[in-house]
Write a protein that binds this DNA or RNA. Structure first.
Lengths: 339, 339
DNA sequence: ATGAAAGCGCTAACAG
DNA sequence: CTGTTAGCGCTTTCAT
């Protein structure tokens, strides 16, 4: 009813076999200096013979350097989240960290204690992928309890401006949203509508700012769930309205939903209607027609989040942002309005 | 340069504050019987006051019941993998387990030691989402080292038939692949082609079996990578061939790629060409045109994998498969060949 | 119903 | 360069 057979080899077994103290073994497995080459070799041989592998729990407990990150998120299947996670994993693996992932329910309420409960122990390093109320709450809770061991991605809108930014990593989707909106305007569209993802994304701000700058009153935002299906429904009325010629969508999935709805409503794209998404998900370029969207380097941001966390943990050289800036990728779902 | 401020409260702090021994506190946090109600209340109050939370590493080290699973996989962004992971997470959370995820590089070679390295300690419970050589290798390595603490999903083709199935959980995609093939044949297609995902999936076997049963020699399989783009390229020649009227694709992404290629080649779907995918990913129903595909309950399988693992760990009632069987979902990318 | 003692496997701080 | 001594915070097992 239980796991394996005999008790796994411990550091003491290795020590005995190599004829050294357990401490020397510890030094070897931690690549510490001050070990004679011959000793090191002998220990390594013993390790190999015994199939010894260090016990992570023991290491953590004994207070060695931290080697794990917990990622808090609500939905691993959303493109942005999944990619960010990938980036974190990549970077963490390179650094020899293991990744714990804790998925929260977007429809539940979490107390501070509930959030802390998700860490392996108090003060454990964490990265929050914040894009909704639940994750934003988790972010705040950890921010207060362990500011030195927290990094969050996203949520630009969620924190006060004066707050130091040394614990957050995000893409400037606001600026690019404004750019996308201006691009549509410049092609002759008189108005640009916005179909919003559930998260209060700053891209919405960029959109309305750009409209305001152009002297246009932003129309009412249409809200959608995260799924393609939800978007298709939410946008049904919008696409049916012949006066609507351009829709900016909170992400690619919503854009696909809009495209579907437009097709059903008999409106051609981009002839009757221009549609722009956010994410540049893998399908965007291969949709029929290919989707105009915004390239968002979530994977890079994930890497950046990990690097920043590690920096906070261990010091060392300041990590510099290394991800691509958001960029508008014009494909075939956008064009001038048909006159 | 380090985490939080003062040392987090330990079981001893709680004990002192509640005026009991640390052992009693342990009993309380483990819901053990044999604790007076008043004592229990007092301890709980102390826990709340101090904001105490048990340290997972210490618990694990001390040999308490295991409360974590490590999931080994190669790609968290593939639909099937992501959904399976979701299912595992859901079930694990319900059971109070934490989920460790270890993502392997599909293009690397891993020794047995490399695989074991990814577990927090020897004998730690693991679930392998096996769908390529790397994960299949990990599955075998763990199978040998710790048969009692391993469950794998997928990989029906990877193990000998006589092997007991008490550690694997999978969808019967072979049968449904045969059914899909027969469905195409029954509509009048003389031949059905297959665009394969990199993984040696049993759906390919189902396809060729169905053709053979119908007295048709299966055409050469066309191989594709996992991405939509790769599929579009891999299928370019196939879709350009007017004698090809039906293509079964290894998954939905490949199908989207084929649809894209077909569009570029000027072949109409389903008039000139029928296309069927696997997965019923969220986009399938909303593609233009909606994709005929196979519903695969990965999330259910993920749950099932966790339940099975837990059963192996703790005994208890036999978990029964609770996921949906694969089912063909006919939408608008399939039909009779144009005569 | 509660407490005391021992130890899980490891690292840290000190001795040599 | 190497060994010794203390814990880390918790759960056993055995007393009481």
């Amino acid at each position: 009813m239980s796991a394996a057979g005999p008790r796994p080899a411990s550091i003491f077994d290795v020590a005995k076999r190599a004829g050294v103290s357990h401490q020397t073994v510890s030094r070897v497995i931690n690549d510490a200096p001050m070990v004679a080459d011959t000793t090191r070799a002998r220990v390594k041989a013993a390790i190999a013979d015994l199939g010894y592998r260090p016990n992570r729990s023991a290491r953590t407990l004994a207070g060695g350097a931290v080697r794990s990150v917990t990622v808090l998120t609500t939905d691993t299947s959303l493109y942005g989240t999944a990619e960010t996670l990938r980036g974190i994993e990549d970077a963490a693996r390179d650094a020899g960290f293991s990744v714990l992932i804790s998925v929260m329910d977007p429809d539940r309420a979490y107390s501070e204690a509930d959030v802390l409960e998700r860490l392996p122990h108090d003060g454990a390093p964490a990265i929050v992928i914040a894009h909704d109320e639940v994750t934003a709450g988790a972010m705040q809770a950890l921010r207060e309890r362990q500011p030195g061991a927290l990094v969050a991605t996203g949520g630009e809108h969620l924190v006060a401006e004066h707050d130091s930014a040394d614990w957050r990593v995000f893409l400037d989707d606001r600026t690019v949203a404004a750019r996308a909106t201006r691009y549509l305007l410049s092609m002759g569209h008189k108005q640009v509508h916005y179909l919003a993802i559930p998260s209060k994304a700053s891209r919405q701000t960029g959109w309305s700012d750009a409209l305001a700058d152009a002297g246009i009153t932003p129309p009412e935002v249409v809200h959608s769930g995260w799924s393609v299906g939800a978007a298709a429904e939410a946008a049904a009325a919008l696409v049916a309205d012949p006066s609507v010629t351009a829709i900016l969508c909170g992400n690619d999935d919503l854009a696909f939903g809009v495209l579907h709805a437009a097709h059903r409503a008999g409106r051609s794209v981009p002839g009757d209607l221009s549609v722009i998404g956010f994410d540049d998900s893998p399908l965007a370029a291969y949709h029929v027609p290919p989707l105009t969207t915004v390239d968002l380097d979530f994977r890079g941001v994930g890497r950046g989040a990990f690097e920043l966390l590690r920096h906070k943990l261990e010091g060392g050289s300041d990590p510099r942002p290394s991800w691509r800036s958001p960029e508008l990728v014009v494909r075939e779902t956008s064009g001038p309005p048909r006159q």
